[in-house]
């Protein structure tokens, strides 16, 4: 994978824009997923994920090919997500689309607090609840939890993506897990 990616990067550096399309194909699911979990809204996630690739393209000459491309790309994407969250802080939570509900927002969630008897609906509800609770985490905890458990990064990779000491990453994962444990303990 890394060899293929580096080959495509060389092509892009030589001016072959089409080669970048293959890079996007390889990483689009991961980047979109990361953005979606961070932002909780498909449209915004799509916008930010696309923007991450555009920035990667524009800055591709500054990527050091001895390093992992995915780490570099995640870093661009997480920074964009965090910027976006900070810009719209006061209302992002209630506006956030709930996972798997195709357009439902937290506003509709509040109204529909009751339990459904159907078990399939309950699974969906559970995932919505978990997504909602992840979105309630302060962004510094949310980002490490998402990178760790949804993108499956190692603690070392997270420390590289976020440019943060390993010890800080650990502390934040511990606090993030503890916060979620509390938030989810009555399920």
């Amino acid at each position: 994978m890394d060899a293929l990616v580096n080959q495509r990067i060389k092509q892009v550096l030589r001016g072959d824009q089409e080669a970048f399309g293959e890079i996007v194909e390889l990483f689009k699911d991961k980047v979109f997923h990361l953005c979606y979990r961070m932002l909780g809204n498909r449209h915004e996630a799509e916008d930010i994920a696309q923007e991450a690739f555009v920035r990667a393209y524009v800055n591709i000459h500054s990527f050091n090919q001895k390093r992992k491309f995915s780490t570099w790309l995640y870093r661009i994407a997480t920074n964009l997500c965090i910027d976006r969250i900070r810009k719209k802080k006061p209302d992002y939570f209630l506006d956030a689309e709930v996972a798997g509900t195709d357009g439902l927002t937290m506003y509709s969630q509040i109204a529909a607090e009751g339990k459904s008897p159907d078990s399939e609906v309950e699974t969906l509800e559970l995932q919505e609840i978990v997504q909602r609770e992840i979105l309630r985490l302060p962004d510094k905890y949310r980002v490490v939890i998402i990178l760790r458990y949804i993108d499956d990064l190692s603690l070392n990779e997270i420390s590289e993506v976020l440019d943060m000491p390993l010890g800080t990453v650990k502390t934040r994962i511990h606090r993030g897990r503890e916060a979620l444990r509390k938030q989810l303990s009555n399920l």
Binding site: Y36, R37, A99, L126, Q127, Y149, I150, L180, L187
Partner: peptide
């Protein structure tokens, strides 16, 4: 909690 977080993974690009 970890299992819950990991259970949220279905999402289409």
């Amino acid at each position: 909690t970890i299992a819950y977080i990991q259970s949220t993974s279905h999402i289409q690009t």
